[in-house]
Design a protein around this nucleic acid. Structure first.
Lengths: 333, 333
DNA sequence: AACCGCCATGTAAAGGATTACATCACCCGC
DNA sequence: GCGGGTGATGTAATCCTTTACATGGCGGTT
C-alpha cells in the first residue's frame, strides 16, 4: 500500500500539501498541484479510508435498509437513493433486514458506531437500538424513513398518501360495477397497510359497501395472497384488491387455478407498479408509486440533516398514479 | 462518543486491558473482565471501526456486487452470501452495478482502498481496475466470481453447469414432441449465455434439430423477451426456451397478447426458478439454480483465501434441477 | 534464599490522513 | 525602505485502537 507520505516524498512536498491537492485543489499552486498529481498517478495512490474517516469522523456513507431485498419494489427505491447519494458525495450501503428486528438492530449499530453517517430505513420499524440516539439528538438525528409513515416515531419520512391511493383503487373497481370486492391487506401491524385499509374502507363507505368488503390479511408475498385469494373466490368476489403487486401475482395465480378468468370473471388490482407488472397475464392494473423518487427524496432529506440545515418539511408526500391495464374489467357474473 | 480511554478510566485499567477484554477475553482475569464489561455497558461503548480497521488493516467486510439488483435471482444469492459471511465474522456490503463498467470500477476501488477485505462479483466482467491487483497477488487475490465462469479471467468461481442445464431443458421440450423451438438467449458477450447456447445446440443436434432452432438474443429482461417472443411466434414455434425466468414472463405475456394459449399452443421454459416462478400463469417450468448455495460457497471460498489457506478447488460446479410445472405440455399444432 | 517462569496488566508505538497554526516569501503602498 | 497583508507550504498534533514489549508479583524448584 502506498501512503500519502510516499506521495509527498516523490512529489517533493509535505503530506499536508498532498492532502490539500486531493481535497481542496484550489488552495495549491498550479505547478505544485501538477507535480503532486503526477506522483499520485505514478504510485497509484488511493487514500486510506479508515485513516480519513478516523480523522474526519465522517464515513461518506449512507446506510439503506430494506425489509426484503427480494422484493423488486425496493430495487427501484435503492437506485433512486444511490443516485441522490452520489450527487451529494456519499455512497450507499444496502442492508437486507429480512423483517428481522435483530438484524435491524445490527445494521442500526453501524450508525452508532459511526460506520455510516446516516440511515434511511424502509419499512415501519425504527430499530430499537436507535431510541437513545434519537432521544439524544432529536431532529438532528441522521435518520430518515422511506415508504411508511408513522407520526409517532418522530423521524422524517417520504411516502405517498396511501389512504388516498387505496381509495382511488377502490373507486376504480366500484366504477366498473364491482360490489363484491375482496381486499388482501398487509399484516395488521404495518402502518402502510392500515392506511391503505382506511382508504379502502372510506371509498367503500361512500358507496354503501362498507359492510360487504371481504378482508383478508396477507404478508405482501405472493404465497400468502395465493392462499387468501382462494378463500375470497369461495366467498364469491368479482374483484380483488391486493396491497402489493406481488400479492396480485399470487391472486391471479389462484384465480387461474380455480378455473376463473381474469379479468373476465374476476378483476385484480395491485399496488406498487413493479417493472414486471405490465408483463403479468393479463397486464396488471395497479397503483404506481414514484419508487425512485422516494429513494431520492429520502436521501436528500438525510443529506440536509447531515449538513446541519433543518429541512423545510420533515414529511414528504409524493404523488401516486392509478395505472389502468387489463386486469380490471366491468363486473359480470 | 465514548472512547476506549474513558472505559479504561471508569474500569480503572489501561486501554490495553479493555481492548483485550473485547477481543480475547480469555487473556484477562475474571474479575477485571467483569469490571471492564460493566464499564462498557454503563457508558454504552462501541469501538470505533475506523480506528480499528486503520490499526488492523482489516475491514471485516466483504463486497458483493450484482449487475442488477432488481433481479430477484440475485436476492437469493445475496442472502446465502450474507449468512456465510456472518458465520465467518464478516458483514456484506451489496453494490448494484447496473451493468455499468464505470460503476463496477467504482466498487472495485473499494477493494484497492482496503475499504473491504474481499470481493464477490456476480456477472461476467472482472472490473478493469482490478487487473493490476490480480496480476500482483495471483491466486491470493481476494476476489471470487459467482454464477458465471470464464476460465480466462483466472478468478475462482462458483456456478452450475450451464451447458448441461440448458441441454436438460431442451431435452424436456424435445421429449414433449416439440420440433419448432425458439430460444431467447442473453446478450452475445455473456459467457453464461454462450454456455447455455452451447448446451441447447448440443441437445438439438442430438435429435437432428440443430438447424431448426430459432435463436433470438435478449438481455435477460422481460421487455426484451416480449419483443423477441413476438418474432418467434410469427416464425411458428411451438415452444420457447428463455435463458431467464424474467424473460419467460415477457414471453408468456407476448404469447397471451398474440392470442395463443400457454401451454396449449406454445410451451415456455425458463431458467433460474425465481421464488415467483410458481405463481406465473401458468406456473413456470424452469431450471432451478441453487441460488443461496452459490452465494454461500462463493463467500466461503473468499474467506478461505482471506485466511491464507489455498482452497482445494477454485472452480465449484453446483447441481441444477429441472422443475416441471405447467408451462410446458406436449406439442400440438 | 535465589532464581525461573508464568500470568495479568501496563506502556507506548504504530497505523495514515487531516488541519490548526506557524512560517516564509513576496508584493503593495506610503 | 519598512510595515502589513496575502498566498503557498510546512510542522506537528490529533483521531482511536491494537499489540509488541516491558513490568511486576507470585508460586514452585533447587
Amino acid at each position: 500500500m502506498t501512503t500519502i507520505i510516499q506521495v509527498a516524498a516523490v512529489a517533493g512536498v509535505s503530506t499536508a500539501t498532498v492532502s490539500r491537492v486531493l481535497s481542496q485543489p484550489a488552495r495549491v499552486a498550479e505547478q505544485t498541484r501538477r507535480r503532486v498529481l503526477d506522483a499520485v498517478d505514478a504510485l497509484g495512490y488511493q487514500p486510506n479510508v479508515a485513516a480519513r474517516s478516523l480523522r474526519t469522523l465522517r464515513a461518506a456513507k449512507i446506510l439503506l435498509t430494506v425489509p426484503d431485498i427480494s422484493n423488486p419494489f425496493f430495487a427501484s427505491v435503492i437506485r433512486g437513493a444511490e443516485e441522490a447519494a452520489r450527487d451529494a458525495g456519499y455512497s450507499v450501503v444496502v442492508g437486507d433486514t429480512r423483517h428481522d428486528p435483530e438484524v435491524e438492530d445490527q445494521y442500526a449499530d453501524m450508525l452508532s458506531r459511526r460506520e455510516v453517517d446516516g440511515l434511511v430505513f424502509l419499512g415501519h420499524r425504527l430499530p430499537a437500538s436507535l431510541a437513545p440516539l434519537l432521544a439524544d439528538q432529536g431532529p438532528a438525528a441522521p435518520i430518515v424513513n422511506g415508504c411508511e409513515y408513522s407520526p409517532d416515531i418522530g423521524v422524517p419520512s417520504v411516502h405517498i398518501d396511501n389512504a388516498a391511493a387505496s381509495s382511488d383503487a377502490m373507486e376504480h373497481l366500484i366504477a366498473l360495477g364491482h360490489r363484491d370486492i375482496g381486499v388482501i391487506t398487509g399484516p395488521a401491524i404495518s402502518p402502510i397497510s392500515r392506511d391503505r385499509l382506511t382508504g379502502a374502507l372510506r371509498a367503500a363507505d361512500r358507496h354503501g359497501l362498507g359492510d360487504q368488503l371481504q378482508l383478508r390479511a396477507g404478508d405482501y408475498s405472493a404465497a400468502s395472497a395465493f392462499q387468501r385469494a382462494g378463500e375470497l373466490l369461495a366467498g364469491g368476489v368479482t374483484a380483488i384488491f391486493c396491497f402489493s403487486d406481488e400479492m396480485a401475482m399470487g391472486a391471479m395465480s389462484a384465480i387461474a387455478q380455480a378455473g376463473f378468468s381474469c379479468p373476465g370473471q374476476v378483476s385484480v388490482i395491485g399496488f406498487d407498479d413493479l417493472p414486471l407488472a405490465r408483463f403479468f397475464s393479463p397486464p396488471l392494473t395497479t397503483i404506481a408509486q414514484p419508487k425512485g423518487l422516494i429513494g431520492q427524496r429520502a436521501v436528500e432529506l438525510l443529506v440536509d440533516i447531515l449538513r446541519g440545515s433543518t429541512p423545510a418539511r420533515r414529511q414528504l408526500t409524493l404523488t401516486h398514479d392509478l395505472v389502468i391495464r387489463n386486469s380490471t374489467a366491468p363486473a359480470r357474473r
